[in-house]
Amino acid sequence: MKSFAYVDAANEQEAIAALGTQRGRILPIAGGMDLVGLMKDYVAQPDRVVNVKRLDRTIAATPDGGLRIGAAATLIELVEHAGAARAYPALVQAAAEVGTPQIRHAGTVGGNVAQRPRCWYFRNEEFQCLKKGGPRCFAVDGENQLHAIFGDGPCHIVHASSLAVPILAYGGTFRVAGPSGERDVAAADFFQMPDENLMGENVLRPNELVTHVTLPPPGRVRSATCEIRFKQSHDWPLALATAILTMSGETVRGARIVMGAVAPVPWRAQAAEAALTGQAVTEATAGAAADAAVRDAKPMSGNAYKVQIARTAVKRAILKAAGLPTV
């Protein structure tokens, strides 16, 4: 790890003041679960690291019945928050599956959302890949079994955040703070595809921070997240999906379905939403919606199997949301 100076920011103002405009030179550290590894591998080589763990970490209901989560809240604080689990089960289910207990005890909500991709070419200092300013994406002709099945590149990462999936599905908003003030960015506008932003994965500028995630009131919905991994524990998802169903009796009146670990951003499946709307949830209708979700998938040379995994994640998320058995 290259040496760096350290600023222990007591609050948001101090944190913003300590950040800078040049990408990668000054980086915020929350739980460190992503950044410390990046620095050890010389993928991140900041001159200064700014501690943002002392920023707001409260998880509280908003006046309109939504939920506001301070980005410095740890994942375990979110998992153990009774109100969050009751109103936003799909979010808490995703948080409970992140990494391992040790990671959830240190990792934060903001850090999970803003973490860098897990692509092994990006993480290896020997590969000067497209995302690091190099000439090409090595996954195209290389080992791509864990890479994207949606999006046309030119970089084929999958977005690493599990929380991003339910946050997008619930219609969440990120509060972004920077030197010129604060702004609210809808989750749908926050994450960026490689053709919009090759060097980053979201709209954050180098001197900005996500300080809060706000979820609108859930309404009378049923929701669930289903994650599928290669190993039962201690692993990254091969695919995950969040399904949020607005029911009218036994019929789905509206649905929001978002997939994760399949594209460079959390991937909304509007075709699946349309396929499910107006139907009663059964294994057949959930399966048909899942078929629609992956119909436009474009797998790479080594990850066609992920299409079926993603399909299963969507199907099971729908069944789980509806309270039906998933297998």
């Binding site: 410390v36 207990p101 005890h105």
Partner: peptide, 24 residues
């Protein structure tokens, strides 16, 4: 932070000590 051999307790919770800066 992938194996757990460095597990310590921080305020009673398990953490990977390899992935936490001493200064923090």
């Amino acid at each position: 932070g992938a194996c757990g051999a460095c597990t310590m307790l921080l305020d009673g919770r398990t953490v990977y000590a390899c992935s936490i800066l001493a200064i923090e």
